[in-house]
């Protein structure tokens, strides 16, 4: 296992030695600024995803047809995601070795990948038939499942992301 991870470790170590990485790491205001911007962006992204998932599950925002909710919120979700990704990459870039050895970071990355697959599967499969169930109070099982998975996975991403601050297992 350690051998398999070696190239990854070398990549993280490679960035760790960059002058710009060290500069962000040691900056008094840039790193806290990035962290704060990351929280603002992620709450915007995850908050709006949550509102859509509640509609899919059938417990919230029921007054709006799903496609309308999707049309209205999607651009803002993408803006939130873009800023989350940019600030997140910068944070990892600034402290690669801190993240590399943190189990919560890898749990977060894994859950994010699953959440991404769930979103893609929903949009390219289930969403095709939206005209048939758009206004229904109880959506088809595939849509409800996508909502429940999305909810659980994104909450998991937020929780494990926050737990990176606690390096219990190193």
């Amino acid at each position: 296992m350690a051998e398999l991870l070696l190239p990854l470790r070398q990549l993280f170590e490679y960035f760790d030695a960059f002058e710009s990485s060290i500069a962000i790491r040691e900056s008094q205001y840039l790193y806290p600024g990035l962290l704060t911007a990351h929280v603002v962006a992620l709450t915007m992204f995850a908050g709006l995803i949550l509102m859509m998932d509640l509609r899919l599950i059938g417990v919230g925002n029921m007054q709006t047809p799903f496609s309308q909710l999707q049309r209205r919120l999607f651009p803002y979700q993408m803006v939130g995601m873009a800023f989350s990704v940019i600030t997140g990459l910068a944070l990892v870039y600034a402290q690669p070795m801190r993240f590399f050895v943190n189990i919560f970071f890898w749990v977060k990355m894994f859950m994010m990948a699953l959440a991404g697959l769930n979103a893609l599967a929903f949009h390219y499969l289930t969403y095709n038939s939206v005209s048939r169930w758009d206004k229904d109070p109880i959506l088809p099982p595939a849509a409800r499942l996508a909502g429940a998975l999305g909810l659980a996975l994104w909450v998991g991403v937020v929780v494990s992301g926050r737990l990176i601050a606690y390096n219990w297992f190193q």
Partner: peptide
């Protein structure tokens, strides 16, 4: 840690509920 995590999850819900109205 438990309280911090729960606070952030609650914040996500709160921000979603605020933004869905404000963006409209």
């Amino acid at each position: 840690p438990l309280v911090n995590v729960a606070h952030l999850v609650a914040l996500v819900m709160f921000v979603g509920a605020v933004l869905i109205v404000d963006l409209k």
